Computed example of a mutant assay.
Amino acid sequence: MKFSLRTAAAAVLASMLTVGSAHALTVYSSVDEENAKKLLDAFSEATGVDVQMVFLSSGPALSRIEAEKARPQADIWFGAPSENHILAKERGLTEAYPSPNASALRDEFKDADGFWHAIYTNPLGFGVRTDILKSRNAPVPTSWEDLKNPAYKGLIQMPSPQSSGTAYSVILTLLEERGEDGAFEYLKALNPNIQTYTQSGTAPSGALGVGETPLAIQFTPGFLKLADEGYPVEVVFPSEGVGYEVASMSILKGAQKPDEAKKLVDWMTSAEGQTALSQTKTYFLPVRTDVSGGAGVPSLDKIKLVSVKPSFAAENKQRLVERWTKDVLGQ
């Protein structure tokens, strides 16, 4: 009898938790947890929609969404580069919703049929702890080629393309600049200077902040934040040029809260939602031209940018990541 009572009590508790969560919009977020919380809290305050967030890097997020497609456990995928959302569309994992705000976005910031919309955009760059390099009598790099300097052996952190869309953007940038074979020759030559390949796209900036590494490669908001907070961090945009991410969002097919998911898409693409990028100090660049990125955030026209077609990025991702694993890691 005691076992039955305990079982019944557990069932009631589980039911209560399920009911509680059923009222919330469930978001799989591939935006870093701190900034995702800032934006989603601002969305909840503006609209009254409760949000339950689960953080997943872009690769694991896509795998989980695909694994759950028969019974989706989330309503919307928030973040990850647009090529990931193109893949999700092609695999039948998302639903079209052309937001009324889509007309304010450039073509590269939205799907023509409304399957995904951009949230923000950011360039790649280097984060440099100038104090640590100075103590080692090592120069501050100004280019991709500089990173091959033997003075940086075992000092650089960057994400792994196997789990991070950020690292895949590095590959695509180098591909555009050097050709495919040249890009992989470069990455293989850079490998001895890599301290670690992180699972998360934003982990290198965390390591930079605590002095675990003096050189980090990722999208730049984490570096801009450290510099703004007074850390001895310099943000470098390599002279050859950098790629940039277009972080996007998609409503998942079979979403339990489609109306609330549409509200998030509409709010994030509105002037109010885009202004929240700077108001909450995310250091992300807005995708609407009528909204400023705020103090300390560079405008894209001040950086040499390397553009990659999202369709190419999506179609070649598995092949290029597998080549990186083979050519660079030797696996």
Rank of each mutant, 00 (worst) to 15 (best):
S160D: 15
S160H: 11
Q162F: 00
Q162C: 00
Q162V: 07
Q162K: 15
S163D: 04
S164L: 03
S164Y: 08
S164Q: 04
G165V: 05
Y168I: 02
Y168Q: 12
Y168S: 03
S169L: 14
S169C: 09
V170C: 01
I171C: 06
I171R: 04
L172G: 02
T173F: 01
T173G: 04
T173P: 02
L174M: 07
L175G: 00
L175R: 09
R178Q: 10
R178P: 00
G179T: 05
D181P: 00
D181E: 15
D181A: 15
A183N: 10
A183Q: 08
F184W: 06
E185T: 14
Y186G: 06
L187M: 15
K188H: 06
A189I: 02
A189Q: 14
N191P: 01
P192I: 10
N193W: 01
N193S: 11
N193G: 05
I194K: 08
T196G: 01
T196M: 14
T196N: 14
T198I: 04
S200Y: 10
T202G: 04
S205K: 02
S205R: 00
A207I: 03
A207E: 14
L208S: 09
G209N: 08
V210W: 11
G211L: 13
T213P: 03
T213Y: 01
P214Q: 11
L215Y: 06
I217T: 11
I217H: 05
F219S: 07
F219T: 13
P221M: 04
G222N: 06
F223E: 02
L224E: 05
L224R: 09
K225G: 01
L226D: 05
A227K: 15
D228V: 00
D228R: 09
G230I: 05
Y231L: 13
Y231M: 04
Y231C: 00
P232T: 03
V233C: 06
V233R: 08
V233Q: 08
E234C: 00
E234H: 04
V235M: 10
V236H: 10
V236K: 11
V236A: 08
P238N: 07
P238L: 08
S239Q: 15
S239H: 07
E240F: 08
G241I: 02
V242N: 04
V242A: 03
G243Y: 04
E245T: 11
E245A: 15
E245D: 13
V246S: 10
A247K: 03
A247P: 00
S248P: 07
M249C: 05
M249S: 12
M249R: 06
I251G: 12
L252C: 11
L252F: 09
L252P: 09
K253F: 06
G254Y: 12
G254V: 14
Q256T: 15
Q256Y: 01
K257V: 01
P258L: 04
D259N: 14
E260S: 15
A261R: 12
A261P: 11
A261S: 13
L264C: 02
L264I: 09
L264S: 03
D266S: 02
W267S: 03
T269S: 12
T269Q: 13
S270R: 06
S270V: 01
A271T: 14
A271V: 12
E272S: 14
G273D: 05
G273H: 09
Q274V: 08
